Simulated scan of single mutants.
Amino acid sequence: MSPVPSPTSVRLSDYLVSDAVVDHEHPSIRAQADRFRAAGDDPVARAEAAFRFVRDEVDHVIDAGDLRVTWRASDVLRERVGICHAKAHLLAALLRAQGIPAGFCYQELSALHGLNGVHLRGKWVRLDARGNRTGARGEFSLDEEKLAWPVDPARGERDHPEIHPAPAAVVVDFLMRAEPGPGWYEKGLPATL
């Protein structure tokens, strides 16, 4: 059974902030977010369009064999590539640019995996736009959690149901220091928060 997502802040406004990582005030983020408004006035339809864009149109570095490192949402959008954390930064920015509260969640798998918590229809849900190659199965759903990877407690894996307004500092620090090249994500990606 999936854990119940729980925000670490009671203020929805904390999940709409623009900063150096989730730079949703950037013109490219605003322009891309405006494209999702074509889905109509329903925030769920716009959120699903943003989710599918990040999941399907932005490559995961491992799946693509890409050597680049991205971490700022606008850079992930420009380069169209990122590790799970970078893709979560972009999805949060695209949603926040539309006034949809979005935060950050984590799973401890073989390394720390990043995904999003999103507030839609009066409740928090977790969404994982990692990308559906190499066995991942992340889907957009408000009714049933459909994350890219199931957690296996027997292997020592665990879910962190907390939804943070900002990305974890250990993740951002790692991404900012990472040097592009083969297997860069294997050189210090945090295993835990």
Rank of each mutant, 00 (worst) to 15 (best):
R80L: 13
A102E: 06
V76Y: 13
I83W: 00
I83C: 14
D75M: 08
A86Y: 02
L91N: 03
Q107H: 10
R96A: 05
P101D: 03
Y106H: 13
A93Y: 05
Q98Y: 12
A92W: 07
D75A: 15
L94W: 11
F104E: 10
I100P: 04
A93F: 04
L91T: 07
A102D: 01
P101S: 11
Y106W: 13
I83H: 07
L94E: 09
L95E: 04
A88R: 12
R96Q: 04
L91H: 04
Y106Q: 05
R78Y: 06
L94I: 12
I100Y: 12
H85W: 15
A93E: 03
R80A: 14
R78I: 03
G103H: 01
L91K: 01
L95R: 02
A93D: 05
I100T: 10
Q107I: 03
A88E: 03
R80Y: 08
D75C: 13
V81N: 04
Y106T: 12
C84Q: 06
L91F: 03
P101F: 07
C105S: 15
D75S: 15
L95N: 02
G82V: 02
K87R: 11
L94R: 03
L90Q: 01
C105H: 05
D75L: 04
V81S: 03
S74C: 13
K87P: 07
I83E: 14
R78A: 15
P101Q: 14
V76M: 05
D75I: 01
R80D: 09
G99Q: 01
G103E: 05
D75W: 00
Y106K: 10
A102K: 04
A92D: 02
A97K: 05
R78G: 07
A93H: 02
L91I: 08
P101V: 04
V76D: 00
R80C: 05
G82N: 08
H89R: 00
G103T: 03
Y106G: 00
L90I: 13
S74I: 06
Q98T: 04
A86Q: 07
A97P: 00
D75K: 10
A102Q: 06
Q98G: 03
Q107T: 09
L77R: 00
A93R: 03
V81R: 10
S74M: 06
Y106C: 01
L90N: 10
G99E: 01
A86G: 13
G99S: 09
